Simulated scan of single mutants.
Amino acid sequence: MIDWDLAVALGSRLAGEGPVVSRAEAEEAVAELRAGAHRSTGLVREFTGLDAPEGTAPILVVDRPGWVQANAEGFAVATRPMIEKLVASKQPKGLGLKVGAKVTGAEVGGLLGFLAGKVLGQFDPFHEPHGRLLLVAPNIVHVERELEVDPHDFRLWVCLHEETHRVQFTAVPWMREHLFSEIRAISDTVEPASFLEGGLERITEAIKAGRNGASIVEMFSTPEQREVIDRVTGMMSLLEGHADVVMDDVGPTVIPSVAQIRKKFTKRRQGVGTLDRILRRLLGLEAKMAQYRDGAHFVRSVVDKVGMEEFNAVWAGPENLPSKAELSDPDGWVRRVLG
């Protein structure tokens, strides 16, 4: 139902190659990012108390096409339960299926191509057996030049954030399977016969109601799916906010210019132009920016109140994750979980 080869080819072409660098500069950046990620493991462990087993979840430094390929593979895994359900129901059929695969492949490729020039790094939880960390070297070099910050400081700062995600998923083994179970829960709510019709109808209703600022995900989701999305939002906000707290609180001890980097980077997160802002809103990236903010506020509030050791109860099991509502009510989470 999705032509993944087309998606990768189109996404790689749209992504471009990134900034012009010499071979020596490229090799230096790749080596420094690998070293920064490995160095960050101990820094994250010392600050958070989370201990990730050795030899899990490899660290890969990639270019933009490499990021596109990796995420196409991840999307294929994430969408498999829903696609299997649609295929089993024979929706769509025959030629419609072939045409649909090309259309959706082109759409996914366009999405990946847009994002490939913006993502600095990410943890890919879908790669077997334990996930993998991706650092996108050309984007990191591009942003450090754009912000005019110290490249060595900026690279370590990015590594601190992304390595925190690798530690989260490998030190908390149930996290990965919990994410998969939530994805399956969304697919379980899909009714194949009315999936496309219902999605288009919800988009029309959203526009009529003046909610044209909603993301594509919000427009296509049903009330049942939004319940799951809210749970995932709580979890992802925790993970992103936790990583932001680590990078900013550990940063001053090892990154001299961290305050300058944070100030410039926060401004950059707001988007650089009208088209960029529209795309960010449609793709739900504005919501992701809120995840950093809300998640960091939650983590800081709880840690300030009870300390890091007590805060780490959040990693004990899925039932201890904050709900979307608790992100803005840290005291409520403390009462529910810590009594």
Rank of each mutant, 00 (worst) to 15 (best):
I2P: 15
I2Q: 03
G11K: 02
E17D: 15
V21G: 07
A24C: 05
A24I: 03
E25N: 02
R34W: 04
A37G: 08
H38T: 02
T41R: 12
L43A: 12
P53V: 04
E54C: 05
G55K: 03
G55N: 04
T56V: 14
L60T: 06
V61M: 08
V62G: 08
R64N: 06
G66L: 02
N71G: 05
M82A: 15
V87I: 14
K90I: 10
K90T: 09
K93D: 15
L95Q: 05
G96Q: 04
K98P: 06
V103Y: 11
G105V: 10
V108F: 10
L111Y: 11
G117K: 00
L120R: 03
F123V: 03
D124F: 02
F126Y: 15
H127Q: 14
H127I: 09
L134M: 09
V136R: 00
A137Y: 12
P138C: 11
I140L: 11
V141T: 08
V143M: 04
V143L: 15
V149D: 00
D150Y: 09
P151W: 03
D153S: 00
L156I: 00
E162T: 00
E163G: 11
Q168C: 13
Q168M: 13
Q168L: 14
F169K: 00
L179P: 03
F180Q: 09
I183N: 07
I186K: 11
D188C: 01
T189Y: 10
S194G: 08
F195W: 08
A206C: 12
I207R: 10
K208Y: 10
N212S: 15
T222P: 09
E224I: 03
I229E: 13
G241H: 08
V245D: 09
M247K: 10
V250F: 14
P252Q: 12
T253G: 13
T253V: 09
I255P: 05
K263A: 15
F265P: 05
K267G: 12
R268A: 09
V272H: 10
V272M: 10
L275W: 13
I278M: 08
L282V: 03
E286L: 12
K288E: 07
K288A: 14
M289G: 12
Q291C: 08
Y292H: 04
A296I: 05
F298W: 07
D304G: 11
D304F: 10
D304H: 12
D304N: 14
V306I: 06
E309N: 07
E310T: 06
G317Q: 02
N320G: 02
N320K: 05
A325T: 00
S328V: 08
G332N: 01
W333H: 01
R335T: 10
